[in-house]
Design a protein around this nucleic acid. Structure first.
Lengths: 214, 214
DNA sequence: AAGCACATAAGACTTTAGTCTGAAAAGTGT
DNA sequence: ACACTTTTCAGACTAAAGTCTTATGTGCTT
């Protein structure tokens, strides 16, 4: 019995994925989520054998969200579903720990192949670009490691910093004291090897892959 | 007599452009620049009838640099040369005031056509994507307008802010007092409708179009 | 000549940011 | 049970950010 979690904010595409999965694969359980917090919540509650994650979900923040998931649930295989087909971006996705990349233009047969490969422990990429995917450069993987070393609370604080909030506002949102926020901020700076919040915001927004579409 | 300025940091591609231009068009003068400050310097010194601008030049910062050029020299027609072919990005480029977009994969004939069209005052786009280019949404064009309203000094200060520098360091780099930097920073906040530097950095980095390649 | 935008900057001030020390509670894994 | 990490936060402090006011000089426009 295999459990697959579909995390995508687009209901229609969730339907399409469900359709592509239910037919070829039997004895699977499908679970769905439409934003990042919900995805985390599902992963906490039940065992999941494969996560199909859309990079552009609300709260996901592209690679930033993927790093977060990888950090919290290192044992859950993750395949990224996205509309992008840029080899440079796909390289980074793989470099950050995803086991596969499924373009939204993939056929049902491709999706089926991909999922079976990933469930078997392989890395799966679209054929036409698998040779274009290179290993990411050292500075990026170092950055990814540093961001991945953040604790969940530190991650949340960094998310709010990236939205331009003051420490006081972050504390209000997370329902903790400003002193605690400051403690987290200092810890983040240490781990990222920086010394002010502007640099932290820059690092966080470097993990965005596309310009904001809205 | 027509003067064309080629601004591209890649010497080989400058050569290629030069080759594509010297043959079909006669009675033109070619000038070259390899980074943004040099481009500005050339535009200050001589009349230029067309600027072929690479978005990814050192110091250029993508749309940020284009906005800067458009602000300083609103009468100089600008065509963007870039490797991207993403319609969303091209839409923004046109929305920010460029008169044309020439993909780096364009043929000599295409380049010739493009330049003649733009010199004649038309907007030129690659055929295969000209129908996919949409008008950019209101919030983005409003953002672009606000950034374009910055004075040259304010632009420079924002550039340094975006690099994570302190006011004191910015003052040292620009050889002005920290008090002056603060005055500029406050003016920038007013124009952008924000109240702290984190938000300024976010706006500036939203005008980046691709993740840093290096 | 007068007006205007811009750049420069000092002074005084309030508010955030950020560090350091220390400490207590809660959870995690062995 | 023990060690370890994480989260929480206070107090005291230094540094930086940001506002407001005022002012001088320059260059450009009308």
């Amino acid at each position: 019995m295999t459990t697959i979690l579909i995390a995508d904010d687009h209901p229609l595409y969730r339907d399409a994925l469900r359709g592509a999965l239910s037919q070829p694969l039997n004895s699977i359980t499908l679970v769905e989520a439409c934003d990042l917090p919900e995805t985390v919540s599902v992963l906490e509650q039940q065992e999941v054998d494969l996560l199909l994650l859309d990079l552009h979900m609300p709260g996901s923040q592209d690679l930033f969200g993927l790093l977060h998931i990888r950090k919290l649930f290192p044992d859950v295989p993750v395949a990224i579903v996205s509309g992008t087909e840029d080899p440079a971006i796909i390289s980074k996705i793989i470099g950050v720990g995803a086991l596969g990349f499924i373009p939204k233009t993939a056929s049902k047969q491709n999706i089926k192949d991909a999922i079976q490969a990933i469930l078997a422990g392989d890395i799966w990429l679209p054929e036409n670009i698998s040779d274009k995917v290179e290993s990411v450069d050292e500075s990026f993987s170092q950055l990814a490691e540093q961001v991945a070393s953040l604790t969940p609370s530190q991650y949340k604080v960094l998310c709010y910093m990236r939205d331009g909030l003051l420490n006081k506002q972050i504390g209000y949102n997370l329902d903790i004291a400003e002193a605690t926020v400051k403690a987290h901020v200092t810890a983040i700076f240490r781990k990222l090897g920086i010394n002010n919040r502007t640099q932290a915001v820059l690092i966080a927004s470097q993990l965005e892959l596309e310009p904001p579409a809205h």
